[in-house]
Design a protein around this nucleic acid. Sequence first.
DNA 1: GTCGGATCAATAACCATTCCTGATTCCGAG
DNA 2: CTCGGAATCAGGAATGGTTATTGATCCGAC
Lengths: 139, 139
Amino acid sequence: MDSGIRDKFRKSGYTLTSQRRAVLEALTESDGHPSAEDVYLIVKRKNPRVALGTVYQALSVLEEIGVIGSKHWNESPTRYDLNLEPHLDIRCGHCGAVSEIPGVGLDDLESRIQENTTYQVKSATLVVEGVCPKCRRNQ
Amino acid sequence: MDSGIRDKFRKSGYTLTSQRRAVLEALTESDGHPSAEDVYLIVKRKNPRVALGTVYQALSVLEEIGVIGSKHWNESPTRYDLNLEPHLDIRCGHCGAVSEIPGVGLDDLESRIQENTTYQVKSATLVVEGVCPKCRRNQ
DNA sequence: GTCGGATCAATAACCATTCCTGATTCCGAG
DNA sequence: CTCGGAATCAGGAATGGTTATTGATCCGAC
């Protein structure tokens, strides 16, 4: 277990419980962009007593203290991610698979937006959807 | 009523019913980015018998035939829009107001994404959130 | 007019997520 | 060690935006 994670727990005041540890482990074991339900199923293999609500709560704590990130596509469950760097993900509209897109910089997009609105910009997220190679083959 | 709208209905095979016309009129009367519920309330003022489900269904038909557009921010209802040009909207996280952001071009973003992924890119939407001037003042 | 498909209103169902409640666990003070 | 209070938990009910279902009704082609 990364000692940085322990630090973040200590600073936040939350405790690093076995359930939260299990959720983190599930994130590592998964294919990289699991939904809360996916995490729940992985966690349940080792500890069948955990409830889905507990997983949701653990995920939100982990996100709050900056240990994991999340992304949301319309009409589909939120995906969680250990990659904290700003990066682009694309979601397949057919099978729901999520993959990273390397090499596309958003540069100064957020500051360009701030220059053109009287709102105070809090976030600018690029939501990318497409068809993955596997689904394209099966069409 | 725009004759282009009639054309789109004719081509699509859908009929331009009074309910769908009422939904379109509500879009024009509204402040520009109403939710389905907002549209429902406006429509109901003139025709109290329409059901919320009918409004949803009318909105989805109108979007399907390309008469209106829609945008979705996490954790909040979908907003509908008569502006069909690609453009940026920002949503206030406090009051939910939605406004357009002029002057920010996404340029070749979608093609840059396509170059860096094996997925077939279908859409790349920028979801921008912030705080509107009014809410900032009241903080 | 009338037949059949499109559309409608009303309501039940859906699903991801959050909330609630009482039970359990954790942790520091004594 | 052990007591008590706070944090966390499991389970299940509730939420809210949206969609599906179901008869009833409308409308246009014949």
